[in-house]
C-alpha cells in the first residue's frame, strides 16, 4: 500500500510533526518528508531525485547530512541489492524490503532455518501430535534458541516441513491421540518417513532413466542409447 503514496499523501503530512527536523534546510526537509512518507518501504535514490526534482549533488549532500543527524538510514533491498535504499530512522524495513524474518543482511539464513526445522520436526516426532502453540512452548521452555519466535514464524517453518514431506498437517478429530486437542484444530504429525529419512524413491526415480537429464536425446540407435549409456554402465557395475 505504502508504495502508492506519492507526493499527494505527502502534502497532508504536517511538517512540524517531528522535532529534530526543525533544524533542517529547505531541501533537506523536502527530501526527508519524501523518505518518511514511504514509511517502512524506504525509497531508492533515483526515485527520490525524480519525486523531489532536486539536483543530484543537492540530494547527495542532504542525504549525508540527514544520515549524520540519524534521521534516516540506509537499508538493503532484497529485490535489488545494487540500489541504494533509504528509510526514515523510526521505521523497521518491511517484509518486502528485508525479505522477512528469515533474511539477515539481505540473504536467507538457511543454516538457521534448517536448525529450526530440525528442532520442530524432533518435537513433533517426540510428541507424536503437536500444535503450533505446543511447539512454540517447547522451544521457549528449552531455550535452545536465544531469539523469540512468533506463532507466524513457527507456522512458516511447519509449512516448509509439510512441503518437505517430513510432517503432515491434519485436523484433530478429538479422538485417540488427538484427545487433548480441540476438534478441528490443525495439528502436525510425522509422516512415516521419520525425522530424517528421505521419501521413498518411486519406481521411475530409482532407475537411471528416471533421473537422466538426457533422456530426450536418447534413442535405441542414437549416439545416446540404452546399450551405450554411461549411467547404465555405472548402475550395473557389480
Amino acid at each position: 500500500m505504502s508504495r502508492l503514496q506519492g507526493p499527494l499523501a505527502l502534502k497532508r503530512k504536517r511538517p512540524d510533526s517531528n522535532s529534530p527536523s526543525e533544524s533542517l534546510t529547505e531541501q533537506e526537509r523536502i527530501l526527508y518528508d519524501v523518505i518518511r512518507s514511504k514509511q517502512d518501504m524506504g525509497i531508492w535514490t533515483r526515485d527520490m531525485k525524480r519525486e523531489t526534482n532536486l539536483p543530484d549533488n543537492v540530494v547527495n549532500k542532504s542525504l549525508k547530512s540527514l544520515q549524520a543527524k540519524k534521521l534516516i538510514k540506509e537499508v538493503v533491498n532484497i529485490q535489488n541489492k545494487g540500489r541504494k535504499h533509504y528509510m526514515a530512522a523510526e521505521f523497521e524495513p518491511s517484509k518486502e524490503i528485508s525479505g522477512g524474518a528469515w533474511y539477515v543482511e539481505g540473504s536467507l539464513d538457511t543454516e538457521f532455518i534448517d536448525l529450526l526445522k530440525d528442532q520442530c520436526a524432533k518435537i513433533i516426532y517426540k510428541q507424536r501430535v503437536a500444535t503450533v502453540e505446543g511447539i512454540l512452548d517447547v522451544i521457549r521452555r528449552t531455550g535452545i534458541f536465544k531469539v523469540e519466535f512468533s506463532t507466524q514464524q513457527i507456522e512458516e517453518i511447519l509449512r516448509a516441513l509439510v512441503l518437505d514431506n517430513v510432517v503432515m498437517d491434519v485436523k484433530s478429530n478429538g479422538m485417540g491421540e488427538f484427545d487433548s486437542i480441540p476438534v478441528g484444530k490443525v495439528c502436525y504429525i510425522c509422516t512415516n518417513k521419520g525425522v530424517r529419512g528421505e521419501p521413498k524413491a518411486g519406481a521411475m526415480a530409482s532407475i537411471p532413466c528416471g533421473v537422466c537429464p538426457r533422456i530426450n536425446l536418447c534413442t535405441p540407435d542414437g549416439i545416446i542409447s540404452p546399450t551405450t549409456c554411461v549411467y547404465y554402465n555405472k548402475w550395473l557395475d557389480f
Binding site: A201, G202, M204
Partner: peptide, 8 residues
C-alpha cells in the same frame, strides 16, 4: 511418483 522424480 512424480514428486520423487522431481526430488531426484
Amino acid at each position: 511418483e512424480v514428486e520423487s522424480i522431481v526430488l531426484k
